[in-house]
Nucleic acid binder design. Sequence first.
DNA 1: ACATTGGGTCAACCCTGTTGACGTAAGGCG
DNA 2: CGCCTTACGTCAACAGGGTTGACCCAATGT
Lengths: 237, 237
Amino acid sequence: MSTRVPQERRRRRPTRSGILLSEDLIVETALRLIGEHGPEALSVRRLGAALGCDPTALYRYFHGTDDLVLAIADRIIGDAMAGFVPGDDWVASLREMALRVRAGYLAHPRAAALAAHRVTRRRNEIRAVETGIGLLLTAGFEPADAARLYLAFIDTVLSHAATEAAFHALPRQQREADHRAWRDVYQDLDPATYPALTAVRPELAGMADSSFPQAVDLLLEALAARARALTRRPTAP
Amino acid sequence: MSTRVPQERRRRRPTRSGILLSEDLIVETALRLIGEHGPEALSVRRLGAALGCDPTALYRYFHGTDDLVLAIADRIIGDAMAGFVPGDDWVASLREMALRVRAGYLAHPRAAALAAHRVTRRRNEIRAVETGIGLLLTAGFEPADAARLYLAFIDTVLSHAATEAAFHALPRQQREADHRAWRDVYQDLDPATYPALTAVRPELAGMADSSFPQAVDLLLEALAARARALTRRPTAP
DNA sequence: ACATTGGGTCAACCCTGTTGACGTAAGGCG
DNA sequence: CGCCTTACGTCAACAGGGTTGACCCAATGT
C-alpha cells in the first residue's frame, strides 16, 4: 500500500489509543522524538509507538520514510529563517545568517543530515540568496563578484552546518568515540615522528569543538578586506 | 565475538572459496562495492558475498561496521596524500593539501558520503593533521592558534569536499535536474521583490560551478593576513 | 608430531522499512 | 434514519540489516 497520500482527509478516525492522526502531528512528534531521545530514535515503529498508533498507519500520510524526512526538513528551513531581517552592517548580517542556518540544522540533526545536500529551490532558499547577494552588493562588490563570493560563503556555511549536523546525527556511541579520539589517540604519540602534534598537544582537546564560528570569522574577514580594497580603488583594472 | 582484532595476523587460512582475507583486501572490496552499487550496497552480508567468505568473517578484522567505515575513510585520506611533501611556501602547501583531499573524495564520491565527517584516528589521518599543523607553526602562529586555525581550515575543506562528493554521487538525471533547476527557478523572478537577484541575473548561471577554490582562497587569504599581522608585531598584548 | 589457537563458518537473535489483506467506523446520500 | 462506500487503522508477514556465541578445522611454533 505504497502510494496515494491525499491532500485533505475527510474521514478522521481515532486510533486504538484514542488520538487523531494528522500530518502536522506526525511531523511534530517525529521532531520531539529526535529531540528527546537522540537522532537514532526516529524509526517508523518507534514513531508509531510514540503516536499511539500502528506504525504502518504513517504510510497513509507519507509515501515512506524519505517523504517524511522531507516534510520534516521543510519545516526546519521555515523555522530557521523565520523573522530574520538584515541590518545595516552587512558583515554582521551575513554572520547572523550563518548562525541561523547552523542552528536550524543542529536543532534537528538527523533530518538535516539527510536533507542537507539537496537543492530545495523553494521560497525560503530563494529569499536567503536574495538577502545574501543584496548584502554583498551594498558592500560595494560588482555583481559578478557578489554572486561568486556569496556562493563561496553560503556553500561553506551549508557544508559546515551539514557536517556538524551529520556528526550530531551519529549514534551516541560513535559520536562519543569520535570525541574521545582527539584526547586518547592523539595524546601519546612519538615526539620524533610527530613534532608538530607534540607541540600543540595541550590544545588538541579542543579539536573536538566546533570550528564553525572560527571558519565563518575567517571568511568574513577575507570578504571585509576585499571590500576595503574596493573602496580604496573604486575602479581597479 | 566482538572485539580483539590483532595487529598482525600469522595464521592465514583461505576461505571456503579459496581467497585469502586481509584488511586491505576487505577495504578495497568495500570501496569497489560502494563505487559500483552505491553506499547502501555496503552491508556485512553483501561484502561477505563479494569477498567469497562468510559475512561474519569480517568481524575478525574489524570491530564492526563503524570500524570498517573508519578504515575506508583513512584509506581515502592515505591515497589522496600519498607522495605529498610540504614545500617552503606554507600557503601553497595548504592549498595543495586542500586540492588533494578534494580530489581524493571525488575519486570515491559515494564512499566519501559515508566517511567524510568522521575522525578515523588512524595513521593517514594523524599524519595529515601533523603536516597541516606543522605548516601553520612554521607560519609563525602560536600552538593554540595553529590548532584552532587548522581545525577551521581542514573542516572547511572536508565539508566542501563532502558536499561536492555527495553531489557527484547523485544519479546523473537528478544531478542535471538540480543543475537546471537553479537556472530555471532563478530566471523569471519579480524584480520588485528580488532586486539583488535581478541585478546579478547574468552571473547566476555560474552558481552551479564549484565554489571550492574560491572558498579555499578566501580562507588562505585570511590566514595569510593574520600571519602578516603576527610578524609585524611579534609579541602583541 | 603434537598442542595451541587464529579465524572461517553456522545458526540464531532482534532490529529495520515496507507491503497486502482485512475489517471497522465515518460520512455522504437517499 | 439507515444503508453503502471507502478511508484508514490494524495485523501478519517478508526481506534485509548488524551482531553474537558456539563450533571446529587447519596453520603454526615447538
